[in-house]
Structure formats: structure tokens, C-alpha cells
């Protein structure tokens, strides 16, 4: 666990409390980039507990966050110039919103941390500031009832904390809103890119092998010439769904992500048709349209998990019709393509 952000220790009534920097080091920046690309994302944590920014005293504000290092980093960076306490609760290294959805950023853990770190001895007021998105897992009135501490929900984003404090612990309507602009969408795209894991190599490899077959025999030459085209087609379908669809989300017609995915998947297929990689026969080309459309549709639908506005009921409704269609498209397309390896259609 990297704790380079600790600059010293503060003596308090509850023992020494680590003092932390509000500035990101090069290492912090580098690690932020790495976890955005899913490298070590599930083990990017800080030790739960109390931390100090600046020189806080008994009257200073208490800010609660989860122990995903990225959440912790955004909070401490936002607190530059402020004297305050951080209460980092154990969310198993998951960000606040997701952890709140799972209940790990929840009433129980908040109450437990208040108790084991003796917050009532550290500060003489009875208020804690939680990120608004923690509200999915935390019941403010229950925390108050169990600990005496009133939960104040801060803004959605840590950057707005200063304005929130200056406004007398009030967040503007804008600060309470979760939006999903292009920049935010681009940040979460890499996570879905790696959804396929090792299948992203295994599947093209199988296509390379199958590509060697032609009606009447097998040729290594064909395995390569047809194989790389197949790989290009597959990746185009995949990325149309998990990169192009999220990036262009508001501009692609339809509300269902699965339909948006078919649109982008087929646009990619038309482009490849023009580049002549979808095979020479109508049967083969149709097979690729089915596979690419189905694959892109599935990957686009998967992005509902990274989006910030889809409901469980909505996604369930969408999947009920989309999933069977996607499976059918990919299976029929795959079967069709394999048949064209052996029969001249």
C-alpha cells in the first residue's frame, strides 16, 4: 500500500492521526491513469481510518469517503487550504457510488467507523459531511439515531466542496446533479474495453484457424489472408459497441443501448464492406453483419453499467428482448460464416 501522501502526524485526543498532502504526486497521477485502464484497479486502496488535512482542531469539519484511493485522492485534493478531518471507511477499495449501491458504503460501516475511531472525542461538534452519492447506501436518520452525528450530504463531486462550504453547507442544484458528458464517458470506456479479457485473443485465434478452410481444402495462406480480415471485423464490432457507442451516446438514435449498438455495429460493417473485408459472397457478408451487429449490440448494452442514468427496471426490460436477439444474431452469423468456409455459396 503506497502511503506517500502522509506528510506527518498530528497528536489528538484519540492518538496520532496521519496528516496528508492535498497535492497529487507524480506517482498519484500515474496510478490514476493506470487504474482508469483497469491496471490494479481492484487493489487501489488506502487504509481506512482518520486522516488530517491542514491543521484541524476539535471544531473542524469531518469529511467521509471510501477507501478507493481515487476517491480519497479527489477528496484530499479538493480540500487544499482547508483544515479538516477525513474519515475513510472500508469500502473494500470500491468508489463511493458503487460501494453505496452494494451497501459497503453504508449506514453500518459509517456507524462502526464513527465508534471505533472515537469521533466524539476527536471533534466537539456532531456533524459529518458525506458525499451525496453515498446516500444510496447510508440512511442519514439512522446514523443520527445510532451515533448522534448528523449526516450532511455534500456535493456529488469533491471539486465542489469549497463552494459547498462557502455557501454554508449548501450545494447548488447543479452540484447535486449527476451528468454524463463526453469527458466522463471517455473516462469509463477503458473499463468495458477489457470486458472480453482473454477471449479478445482467443476468439480471433479461433477465427484464424477456421479461416484456413475453404471449399475443398485447407490453406495456411488463406488462414492469414482471411484471418486478419476476420479479426478486423470482430474488433470493429466489439469497439463499435464499447467505444463508439459510449462516446457518441446522445447522438445515436434510440434509447435502448442495444439498438444504439446495432446502429454503430452496422455502420462499422458498412465501412468494412467498402474496405472489402466482409468476404466475397452475400452469405459471408450477411454473416458478418449479423455477428458484428450482435456483438456491438451486446457491448453497447453492457455500457449501461458504466452509465449514470439507467435503472435496474429499465435494463431488465431492455435485456429481456435484446439478449435473445443478440445471441441469435451472433450464433446465426457464426454458423453462416463457418458454413461458407466449407461450401461455396
Amino acid at each position: 500500500m503506497n502511503a506517500g501522501f502522509i506528510t506527518g502526524h498530528l497528536q489528538t485526543d484519540v492518538g496520532p492521526v496521519p496528516q496528508i498532502s492535498t497535492v497529487w504526486s507524480f506517482q498519484d497521477r500515474l496510478n490514476t491513469m493506470k487504474v482508469r485502464w483497469s491496471i490494479g484497479r481492484m487493489s487501489y486502496r488506502v487504509l481506512p481510518g482518520i486522516y488530517a488535512v491542514g491543521n484541524p482542531d476539535k471544531s473542524s469539519r469531518v469529511f467521509v469517503t471510501g477507501n478507493y484511493k481515487l476517491s480519497f485522492d479527489h477528496l484530499r485534493r479538493a480540500l487544499i487550504g482547508i483544515d479538516g478531518w477525513l474519515l475513510v471507511i472500508d469500502t473494500k477499495g470500491i468508489n463511493v457510488w458503487c460501494a453505496a449501491g452494494k451497501g459497503t458504503f453504508g449506514t453500518k460501516e459509517v456507524v462502526r467507523r464513527i465508534r471505533i475511531h472515537h469521533l466524539e472525542k476527536l471533534v466537539d461538534h456532531r456533524k459529518i459531511i458525506l458525499p451525496q452519492l453515498g446516500a444510496t447506501g447510508v440512511s442519514a436518520h439512522e446514523v443520527k439515531h445510532m451515533t448522534g452525528f448528523a449526516v450532511i450530504y455534500g456535493p456529488v463531486k469533491a471539486v465542489d466542496i469549497k463552494h459547498f462550504l462557502e455557501a454554508g453547507l449548501k450545494a447548488s442544484d447543479q452540484m447535486r446533479l449527476v451528468t454524463f458528458p463526453l469527458a466522463e464517458r471517455l473516462k469509463v470506456i477503458p473499463v468495458d474495453v477489457f470486458y472480453g479479457k482473454y477471449y479478445m485473443l482467443l476468439v480471433p485465434a479461433i477465427f484464424f484457424i477456421l479461416s484456413g478452410f475453404y471449399p475443398g481444402g485447407y490453406s495456411v495462406d488463406s488462414a492469414f489472408t482471411v484471418g486478419w480480415k476476420s479479426t478486423l471485423n470482430l474488433y470493429s464490432g466489439y469497439f463499435a459497441g464499447c467505444v463508439i457507442t459510449p462516446a457518441l451516446l446522445p447522438w445515436i438514435p434510440f434509447r435502448r443501448f442495444s439498438l444504439k449498438g446495432i446502429v454503430t455495429g452496422w455502420l462499422a460493417a458498412f465501412l468494412l464492406l467498402w474496405l472489402n473485408t466482409l468476404g466475397g459472397s452475400i452469405a459471408e457478408t450477411t454473416s458478418w453483419f449479423l455477428m458484428m451487429g450482435g456483438l456491438s449490440s451486446f457491448m453497447a448494452m453492457n455500457f449501461t453499467g458504466s452509465s449514470t442514468f439507467t435503472s435496474l427496471s429499465g435494463v431488465q426490460k431492455e435485456m429481456k428482448t435484446a439478449l435473445p436477439i443478440q445471441i441469435a444474431m451472433v450464433s446465426v452469423g457464426l454458423a453462416g460464416w463457418i458454413i461458407t468456409r466449407f461450401l461455396a455459396l
Binding site: N302, T304, G305, V315
Partner: peptide
């Protein structure tokens, strides 16, 4: 979760296909 009066109900969960 934060309605003290229990006036709000919703079948909550993750809107995530995966």
C-alpha cells in the same frame, strides 16, 4: 433510504447489464 417517514418506495438496484 433517507426518507425518515418511509414515504418513498423503489425497487432499487444496479442498472447494469453485466
Amino acid at each position: 433510504k433517507n426518507c425518515q417517514e418511509g414515504a418513498i418506495t423503489v425497487k432499487s438496484g444496479v442498472g447494469c447489464a453485466a
